[in-house]
């Protein structure tokens, strides 16, 4: 309990003195994870929409695969991306290992299945309601998919937030492909891991408290917007 109190004090102290290093780490965390979630949404949402409306052989298998990949271990993704981006790997010449770009790629891969699978579920439920009406109006699959994306937009915000939460909270993948380089690829989670290994548990926990508060604040904001929008648009 004493340690928890210490951690809270540490967190407050860090915020209180507007620690510039902390600020840098927080900004990088947000940049990396928000970019990753954008990339993942641009790829994952259309996949979810397509899976919701398309009937093809093997659809069930693809859905099961996506659901299973939601539990993809970050370390495995990290290793995979590391081997791809390593100088000795196929994408080595790009020279982006140990950069924020590499971390974005790893996080995006990690959350595409989450966004794909959860948005598929959301849109499939909506499709049950919409299907006859849209087919009656002569909507082709592609139109139907984009209509569903637009009409379920408020629920999809929650889906995207789930992806963001996973991205910003994960450490296994980014520490491998980012290298936790001070000032370059050190984000909240890798900083927490580092402070933990240095045995500075209160500081590590303090950073953790800041991370969780950020995520909560972001979710609260999104939830307020969603509520307001639902009240407005039904």
């Amino acid at each position: 309990m004493e340690e928890l109190r210490q951690a809270c004090l540490q967190a407050l102290a860090l915020i209180g003195r507007l620690d510039s290093q902390l600020f840098e780490i927080v900004v990088l965390s947000l940049q990396v994870s928000l970019t990753a979630v954008t990339v993942a949404a641009v790829i994952g949402l259309p996949i979810g929409a397509a899976l919701a409306v398309e009937c093809f052989r093997g659809r069930q298998a693809v859905i099961v695969l996506f659901n299973a990949l939601m539990g993809l271990p970050p370390v495995v993704v990290g290793l995979l991306v590391y081997l791809l981006l390593s100088r000795a790997g196929p994408l080595g010449p790009l020279g982006i290992l140990f950069t924020p770009t590499a971390m974005i790629i790893a996080q995006a891969i990690l959350i595409i299945p989450i966004i794909g699978a959860l948005s598929r579920q959301t849109m499939e439920d909506a499709w049950r309601e919409y299907e006859e009406q849209l087919r009656s109006l002569g909507a082709k699959r592609l139109t139907a998919a984009s209509t569903l994306l637009w009409d379920t937009r408020f629920s999809l915000v929650t889906v995207v937030l789930a992806g963001f939460g996973r991205a910003v909270a994960e450490v296994g993948a980014v520490i491998i492909v980012g290298g936790n380089i001070d000032g370059v690829t050190r984000v909240m989670t890798t900083a927490i891991a580092l402070e933990t290994s240095k045995g500075d548990l209160p500081l590590a926990l303090g950073l953790g408290i800041i991370l969780v508060s950020l995520v909560i604040a972001l979710n609260a904001a999104a939830s307020l917007i969603r509520e307001a929008a639902l009240r407005r648009y039904g």
Partner: peptide, 25 residues
């Protein structure tokens, strides 16, 4: 055209709902 027992309203304005069908046509 067909009208169903439960109307399916798209999440947009009344006007846009009508225009949606016309655009598809």
């Amino acid at each position: 055209a067909m009208v169903f027992q439960r109307p399916v309203m798209l999440r947009r304005s009344a006007l846009r709902n009508v225009m949606y069908g016309l655009k598809l046509a």
